[in-house]
Simulated scan of single mutants.
Amino acid sequence: MSGLPPLPPIDGDATGRSMIDLLDEEHEQLDRLCARAETEPAASDVLVATLARHLSAEEQYLYPAVSSVLPAGATIASRELAADAELLVALRRLHTNADRSSLRTVTEHVREHTHRTAGELFPALRSRCTEEQLVRLGNRVEIARSAAPTRPHPGTPSTPPLNKLVDPALGVVDKVMDALTRRTTWEEDL
């Protein structure tokens, strides 16, 4: 493998969706949710939850892959983690205030994030990773996303291995709080 973090061995071919395809699809969903949140207050909660899950999964798998396989990957991953930290702070403001100014700030961060990843990271990863590696990483992203927090937690670990331990624990707490408050966290439930 081309310097990627170790992935468990598999018997046969890897099946599933590419990490890049999954994250790219989520970027489109985040753009759509930013627009919906302008007119639908409930979409703001879904935006917060979707973005919190998305950032958690990227921090667990995308950035370590970037760091491992791209020239200057560690520098790029550090830049993205710093941008994510700013986004989590803005997301926390949106979660607690849900005002137009907070939504505009989050929307700007989301647009910058999707532009950078789609224009720079994804093409570079596609050229340096096999489709099987990207599918195996996609499988990990799906698992991480399902266990991830649904609320922003700035200041928690953003790199493996600690984020792979802390994020699922926070995810359990967040999901309990979501159930108790009947908070909508999935777009299909809007």
Rank of each mutant, 00 (worst) to 15 (best):
P9F: 03
P9L: 11
P9R: 10
G12A: 10
D13W: 00
D13N: 09
A14R: 09
A14N: 09
T15F: 12
G16N: 09
G16V: 06
G16K: 06
R17Y: 08
R17Q: 12
S18H: 02
M19Q: 08
M19D: 01
I20N: 02
I20D: 00
D21F: 00
L22H: 02
L23I: 09
D24F: 06
E25G: 06
E25K: 10
E25Q: 13
E26C: 11
E26I: 05
H27L: 02
H27M: 04
E28F: 12
Q29M: 15
L30N: 04
D31L: 13
R32F: 11
A35Q: 14
A35V: 12
R36Y: 11
A37W: 07
A37D: 05
T39W: 01
T39I: 08
A42N: 12
A42F: 06
A42T: 14
A43F: 08
S44F: 05
S44P: 03
S44Q: 10
D45T: 07
V46F: 03
V46I: 14
V46N: 06
V48Y: 01
V48S: 02
A49G: 07
A49D: 03
T50F: 00
L51D: 05
L51I: 14
A52Q: 03
A52H: 03
R53S: 06
L55T: 08
L55D: 03
L55H: 08
S56T: 14
A57C: 13
A57Q: 04
A57Y: 02
E59W: 00
Q60F: 02
Q60Y: 04
Y63E: 02
Y63I: 00
V66H: 02
S68P: 09
